[in-house]
Amino acid sequence: MIEAGTEPMPPDWPKAGDEIRAQNFGPFTREALARYAAVSGDDNPLHLEPHAARAAGLAGMPVHGMLIFSCFEPLIMRWRRDLFIARLSGKFLRPVLAGEGIRVSGRVMRRQDGSRPELILRLTARGPKNDLAIVGEATVLYEIPGPLG
């Protein structure tokens, strides 16, 4: 990470209104949910057992919200490698069900050209019917990519 106040803004630094090209993730199969449960430790039966999902009033097993939310980081880092994600938040609005995929996209809402350039991003993850699954916001700071970054 760089120290604040030491780096100029790059010439291609985004401006408000710029779009982050949408990316597709999934479909998230039952097997993918089981694998995510294993690596995240979130083995809530809601995501793994159809009867638990039914008991919670869902038509099918929902994809882990955090699995969907986790797609925001690769979306941002594939867009630009010169960013440090300082803040990322999201509200989980609708479930995406096992077997479905998502489309994740973003837009620059605000740009701040201070001593360390900063962007505010609006992020969305949409289900197969274009319904909003997660709406998120990120604050990203300019950072010179390292040799492996």
Binding site: S70, E73, P147, L148
Partner: peptide
């Protein structure tokens, strides 16, 4: 691997700490 991660260079994925809730 399971989150389509783009992290390299010795850093941990941003959402990895949710694992510690388990």
């Amino acid at each position: 691997r399971e989150t389509g991660g783009a992290r390299t260079g010795g850093f941990v994925p941003l959402t990895f700490p949710v694992r510690w809730l388990a």
